[in-house]
Computed example of a mutant assay.
Amino acid sequence: MLKEIRIWTAERPLTVSAVLLLMALVYFVAPVVYNDPTNLFGHGRQEQGAEDFATSLWPELCLAGVLLAIVVLIGWVRSTCLTTRLHIGPIFLAVPYILFVIFIASSPALLALSQDREIILTPAEWQVVWVACLAAFLVGFFEELLFRGVLLHGLRARMAAVPAVLVAAVIFGSFHFVNWVNGQPLDATVAQVSGAAGGGVFYGAMVLWTGSIWPSVMLHGLWDSGVTISQTLAAKSPVVSDQVPDTDANASAGLSLWEALLSPEMIYGLLLLFAWWLWSGRRKKAKTA
C-alpha cells in the first residue's frame, strides 16, 4: 500500500503539492467558522509582538509535525531537499541578510540608546520572547517545507528552477491573504503579502544555491524572530513609536506596497536568483563542451 502511494505521488508532484497547499489553506481559513463575524475580513486587529506569537507555539509544532509526517510517508524527504547534500560555501551569501535582520531586531533599542533612554523587559517578558522565537522557527520550518520544499518540487516538475522559485514566492505571498480573512486590516495584509513574496524569492534562491532547505528554514525563522523582537522592544520603548523604523509587513501597517516590493530581501533575492541562473547556465555549457 505504501509503495503504491509513493509511486502515485512521484508521478503527480504538482497535483500532490496543490492538494497539500489546499489542506493548509483550509486549516488557516477554518477560524472563520467560529470567530466573531464582525472581526473578519479586515475588521479585526493585527497581531504583533512576542505575546501574540508565543500563543502559536503548540499549533505550529503540530502543523510542522503533520507536514513532516506526510512528506516522509509519501517518500518526498529528498525531493523536498530535507536530506540532500548541503553546499556550505553559498551559505555565506546569507551574511548580508543576517546583518539586516540583526539591525531590524535591535533598531528600537538603538533608537532608545541614541536618546539616552533604555528599554527594560522583565524576566517573564524575556521568557515570552524566547517562546515566541521558538514558535517563529517552527513557522519557518513549516512554511519552508510547504513552499520551498513541497510546492517548489511540484513546480519544478513542470518548469525551470528560476520560474518555479518566482511562482512559489508569489503563491507564498498571496497565501498571507488568509490573515485578512481572519481580521487583519487590508493595508497591513497587502504589505505583508508583498513582503512575504520578496522573502520567498530570497529563500528560494538560497535553496537553489545550497541544494538544501535547511538554510532557508533557519533564515526564515531568524527573520520572524527578529521582527517579533523588534515589535516587542518597540512596544516597550520610551521613545515615541512613530520614530521607530518600520520593520516588515508583519510589523507595520504603514509600509506601502512599493516599499515592500523594493525591500532589501526582494532586491537581494532577485540578484541571487539571477546570479544562480548565470552560474547554472555556464555550468551546463561546461558539461556539454
Rank of each mutant, 00 (worst) to 15 (best):
G75L: 07
W258G: 12
G254R: 10
P13I: 06
W279H: 11
L261F: 03
I120E: 11
L63K: 14
L25I: 10
A105V: 08
A160I: 01
P59W: 09
I88W: 13
A18D: 09
R117K: 15
V66M: 10
P13W: 07
D187F: 08
G281S: 14
L273V: 07
L93W: 10
V239S: 03
A191Y: 00
E47L: 13
A160T: 10
G199D: 02
V167A: 09
E60S: 15
V129T: 05
G195S: 07
A234I: 07
L151H: 02
I267H: 09
V181Y: 06
N179I: 03
R45Y: 10
F92D: 00
L134Q: 05
F172I: 10
G269S: 05
Q127H: 04
I104P: 00
E51L: 13
W76R: 09
H87G: 06
V128P: 02
A64N: 03
L155F: 01
A112S: 10
G173S: 07
S107P: 01
E265T: 12
T84W: 06
L20P: 08
W258T: 15
T80V: 15
N39M: 15
E118F: 12
L255I: 13
L113P: 00
V33K: 07
R78T: 14
N179Y: 01
V139H: 02
E143P: 04
A168P: 03
A64V: 09
F274V: 15
I91R: 05
R282S: 13
V131D: 02
I88G: 08
L21H: 10
R78V: 03
L134I: 14
R158Q: 15
A136I: 02
V16W: 05
T38V: 12
T122W: 04
G183V: 06
I171A: 09
S79H: 14
V162F: 01
S194T: 14
A135S: 15
S107V: 05
K3V: 03
L222Y: 05
G75D: 00
L121P: 02
G173R: 01
P31Y: 08
Q184M: 09
A188E: 06
R117A: 14
